[in-house]
Amino acid sequence: MSSTRSTNTPAGPSAGTAPVVVIGGGQAGLATAHTVRALGMGRPVVLEAANRPAGAWPHYYDSLTLFSPARRSALPGATFPGDPDGYPARDEVVAYLADYAARLDADIRTGHRVERVRAAGSGGFEAVTANGEVFAAPLVIAATGEFSRPHRPVLPGLDAFTGTVLHSAEYRRPEPFAGRRVVIVGGGNSAVQIAIELAAHARVTLATRHPLRFMAQRVLGRDVHLWLHRTGLDTAGWARPLLTGGKGTPVMDTGAYRDTIAKGNPDRRPMFTRLDGDQVVWSDRTRERVDVVLLATGYRPGVEYLDGLGALDANGRPRHDGGVSTTHSGLGYVGLEWQRSFASATLRGVAADARHVLSRLRERSRSGRRPARAGRTG
């Protein structure tokens, strides 16, 4: 790794060509750029909408910590500082990504929001930014990942709810909710972490469609992510229901979460029937006034710049096979949830996926093969 050039200075209507254009400068984009260099594919251009290459991390809630230890969360070529068995906090991840980008031999352009990707006459692509710059390349990797577009589900009465509605993407700290009645919709890791933090200041309920299913964070003294990797469960398709839902929403836990929720602060209840004014109507038909509904309902891939290319399905999700587009030669994805493994959308999974995708795209380019139209949607 060596020095990098980051800039938000416009370069005119035509910004030139690159061997690979990477869209997104977060963990997926940075891992992809490093892999481009490692595979000898030239010096990539990384286009990042924000003013720094850190992806969605600066926008998460203050107390967020990684769900995998530092030793399992490093990007290629740079160990994560601090306790290797510790779980880095949000600001530590932001600092790590900034340092990684500063030493990465790539042309990183911050302040460059890609508005659309179009096919070029040469068979490659052109990425067009909000300020009209055009970056041409034979290969484009969409690395804006899974966490840039908050998902707001359709819930009965939600649009007419007279209290406060916010997504977990807007939550920062618990103090503004002191003394309020809060219902959190969702039961994943972030939902539980936020609920327990809020419960010290407010009365909180987790409303979920399925019971919470706690998974041991550590097994035989080692983090579960180590065992998932060593046993192959990370990438085993048959294991996906066990790791992502099954008969309950999985939550990584050292035991503290389970014990706290068992005591009823916060409590967990079946999903409510509807919202009515400032009230929630529970499944047993009881009503309760609520101040805040917090949606911990996840995200959708932020790849709307591909809308006009024909690379997405009717729901706006990429058509791909393990991150390789099934609609366009030269187009790939890194950072999608379950792209190839349980860890695909995480720090510990993006590098392996980047190598897989770039190797397949390079092989396809050399052989002249066109993508099959079949393939799953991520």
Results as ranks from 00 to 15, higher is better:
129 T>A: 10
332 G>A: 07
354 A>W: 11
215 M>E: 03
75 L>I: 15
251 V>Y: 01
128 V>N: 10
27 Q>I: 09
57 W>M: 04
222 R>W: 10
294 L>Q: 03
145 G>P: 09
190 S>I: 01
71 R>N: 06
116 R>E: 12
152 R>D: 14
225 H>G: 02
347 L>T: 00
113 R>E: 11
154 V>A: 15
373 R>P: 03
190 S>N: 03
341 S>Q: 10
186 G>I: 03
64 L>H: 00
94 V>D: 06
345 A>P: 02
30 L>E: 11
31 A>R: 04
162 T>P: 08
181 R>T: 09
315 N>F: 12
283 S>Y: 10
353 D>Q: 09
349 G>M: 07
292 V>Q: 02
368 G>K: 05
104 L>W: 09
323 G>M: 05
328 H>F: 06
167 H>D: 05
111 G>Q: 14
143 A>G: 12
318 P>F: 08
219 V>D: 06
252 M>L: 14
347 L>G: 00
312 L>K: 13
45 V>C: 11
261 I>P: 00
11 A>W: 12
224 V>M: 04
140 V>P: 00
159 D>L: 13
232 G>F: 07
162 T>F: 15
5 R>N: 11
264 G>W: 14
71 R>K: 13
281 V>M: 11
190 S>Y: 02
301 P>T: 06
164 T>I: 08
157 G>C: 10
323 G>Y: 03
264 G>A: 13
160 A>N: 11
347 L>A: 02
56 A>H: 12
60 Y>L: 04
59 H>C: 04
304 E>P: 07
339 Q>H: 06
308 G>H: 09
177 F>H: 00
322 G>V: 01
365 S>V: 04
325 S>Q: 09
68 S>Y: 00
